[in-house]
Design a protein around this nucleic acid. Sequence first.
DNA 1: GTTGCCGGTCGATTGCGTCCACCGCCGTAC
DNA 2: GTACGGCGGTGGACGCAATCGACCGGCAAC
Lengths: 148, 148
Amino acid sequence: MDAIDRQLVELLRVNARLSFAELARQVGLSAPAVHERVGKLEATGVLRGYHADVDPEAVGLGVTAIIGVVQDSTGDIDDVLDTLGRMPEIESCYFMAGEESFLLKARVATIADLEQLIVRLNRTPGVSRTRTAIALSTKWEGRPQPPA
Amino acid sequence: MDAIDRQLVELLRVNARLSFAELARQVGLSAPAVHERVGKLEATGVLRGYHADVDPEAVGLGVTAIIGVVQDSTGDIDDVLDTLGRMPEIESCYFMAGEESFLLKARVATIADLEQLIVRLNRTPGVSRTRTAIALSTKWEGRPQPPA
DNA sequence: GTTGCCGGTCGATTGCGTCCACCGCCGTAC
DNA sequence: GTACGGCGGTGGACGCAATCGACCGGCAAC
């Protein structure tokens, strides 16, 4: 991970569809050299993938909620995690310090869908209760700079 | 936005570096047709960009925190937002319903950096107080499936 | 000093990106 | 019913990119 690697990572974080030739021009190396470096960054897990940033509203997911999950004493953490992982509405999942073991970010189409999701969460074994906060708007998400 | 558009969006969400030729094969159209469709999806804001997914720990950001921000009555929301936007540690920012106006996801290198960030947040005009929760681990982030 | 390795360049081949001309379908006007 | 126009697609062509292999220079070990 030298300065050129950091530059490549930064360039790809901003625009993952840059060609190797373009990356090569930007960092001042040849295309095969860049190809090699990016390959190694992928192999070592620094670059985990490349994803299109999709406007959630455009695909019918207009409601964003942050949900804290409190465990009860009966369940195993991994079982709860497994169940959470099967709910595609849950976009992100963090294991937290504090009373709430998990913090989830969920996106659904409607408030009714959110209600259903919360009910399902509260019914899953090992979950004692949940606390939901609704996001009125997403100001920004993922670093490459705030919109204004 | 027909079925083929949805398919293209999904393919690019999973792997943003797929070539147009490959996309064309997957959806059963010619490459120029796919090129045209993707261009329109970008122009209409459905596809907002393409970003590499970088392992935060690999770039020295080992500490993740979720911070709720309570406003006081003196400040303008847009001023607070502007200040938050200038803090590069803040990866995501949601405007929330409830007592805490903003919910932030921040990544920093060390707990000491987190402390500094919290101090800076509490000092910014318009901010009454903050509440910070630390993520012990990120189970997953951004939909394309939980790791296990 | 010699050897081996790492990481780079260069050149060639294959395949992709992209522009253009053309075509078929469908809705509309008359 | 028929002629027309626009939209969205195909196919071909050309230049550039991806990627492989051969080679090369610098550095470290011995």
